[in-house]
C-alpha cells in the first residue's frame, strides 16, 4: 500500500502533505496553525487556498514551500520530503523546484528587470536558456522593459517581472501569495488569466493563497481552510460557490 502511494505521488502529484501539523508558541500557550492536513496537488493544476484571516492558509503555504518547518508530518515536493531534509538542502529545493510570486512583488531594487528574472538561475549557478527566457518575457510583454529598474516600472509591470522570475526556472510548483493584492482590478484580472493559461497550456503547477473569491474563481480547485483544517475542497469553483461556502462555514 505504502509503496503504491509513493509511486502515485511521483507520477501524478507535484506536491503533497501528509498529516502536516504546525504548532506555534510554547507548551503553555500553543496555537495550532495547521492541524493534520493531508492534501495532494496534481501536476499542472491551479489550486486556490482560501480562508478568512487566521485560518492558517499562509502557514500551510509557508510549510509546503519550504519557507517554514512543520512541527510534524511530511511535505513532499517532487520526491523530496522537506520535513526530513536539513536546512541547506531545503534551501536548494526552494531554489531549484519552487517559484514564488509575492503580494509586494519583492524585486531587488539594485537589479534591472532582466537581472531580477534570472537571479534564481544565477544563484543556482545554472545557465540562462535564452529561448526559455525570451518565451517567458514575450508571453508577459516585458520585452522593452528588461533594462529598467523596479523603481521605473508600474505595479503591474513589477508583478509581471516577479512572475517571469518564478517561471524561468521551470519549477515543480509556483506559490503565489495574494498576487493581485497590490494591483488594480484590471491588471489583477489580466495576471490571473495569465496564471490560468500557464497551468492549462504549459502544465505549470500553481498554488495561490487568496481571500478574494473572484480570484479563486480562476483556479480549477479551491481548498477551504478554517482553524488550520481543510473544511472544503471545491472543483471548478465559481465566485458565488466560494462565497456561499465561506458564509455557511463562518456562520
Amino acid at each position: 500500500m505504502e509503496r503504491t502511494t509513493a509511486v502515485t505521488v511521483i507520477t501524478h502529484t507535484a506536491c503533497a502533505t501528509r498529516h502536516l501539523t504546525k504548532i506555534y508558541g510554547s507548551t503553555a500557550e500553543q496555537v495550532v496553525a495547521v492541524d493534520d492536513v493531508s492534501v495532494d496537488i496534481a501536476r499542472g493544476s491551479f489550486t486556490a487556498i482560501m480562508g478568512p484571516s487566521g485560518s492558517g492558509k499562509s502557514t500551510l503555504m509557508h510549510c509546503m514551500a519550504g519557507l517554514d518547518r512543520p512541527t510534524s508530518g511530511q511535505v513532499l515536493i517532487g520526491d523530496d520530503d522537506l520535513a526530513a531534509l536539513p536546512e541547506r538542502a531545503v534551501t536548494r529545493v526552494r531554489r531549484d523546484k519552487v517559484g514564488f510570486i509575492f503580494q509586494a512583488f519583492n524585486l531587488l531594487p539594485t537589479l534591472t528587470a532582466e537581472q531580477n528574472i534570472v537571479l534564481p538561475l544565477e544563484l543556482a549557478g545554472r545557465r540562462v536558456e535564452r529561448s526559455v527566457l525570451d518565451a517567458v518575457v514575450d508571453s508577459l510583454g516585458l520585452g522593452d522593459r528588461l533594462g529598467h529598474r523596479p523603481s521605473q516600472l508600474s505595479g503591474g509591470q513589477q508583478q509581471r517581472v516577479a512572475v517571469a522570475r518564478a517561471l524561468v526556472t521551470r519549477p515543480e510548483v509556483i506559490f503565489a501569495d495574494e498576487p493581485t493584492g497590490a494591483l488594480d482590478q484590471k491588471t489583477g484580472t489580466r495576471l490571473l488569466d495569465y496564471l490560468r493559461a500557464c497551468a492549462r497550456d504549459d502544465g505549470q503547477t500553481i498554488i495561490m493563497v487568496t481571500h478574494d473569491a473572484r480570484a479563486a474563481a480562476y483556479a480549477d480547485r479551491a481548498l477551504m481552510l478554517l482553524d488550520g483544517r481543510i473544511v472544503g475542497d471545491l472543483a471548478q469553483p465559481t465566485a458565488e460557490a466560494v462565497t456561499g461556502f465561506l458564509g455557511a462555514v463562518a456562520a
Binding site: T91, R94, D96, F100, N106, P120, L123
Partner: peptide, 16 residues
Amino acid sequence: QRESALLRALGMQRGQ
C-alpha cells in the same frame, strides 16, 4: 531585512 528574506526564499544559502 526584507530583501535578505527574499534572497533566502529564492534559494540563497545563509553562507552566501
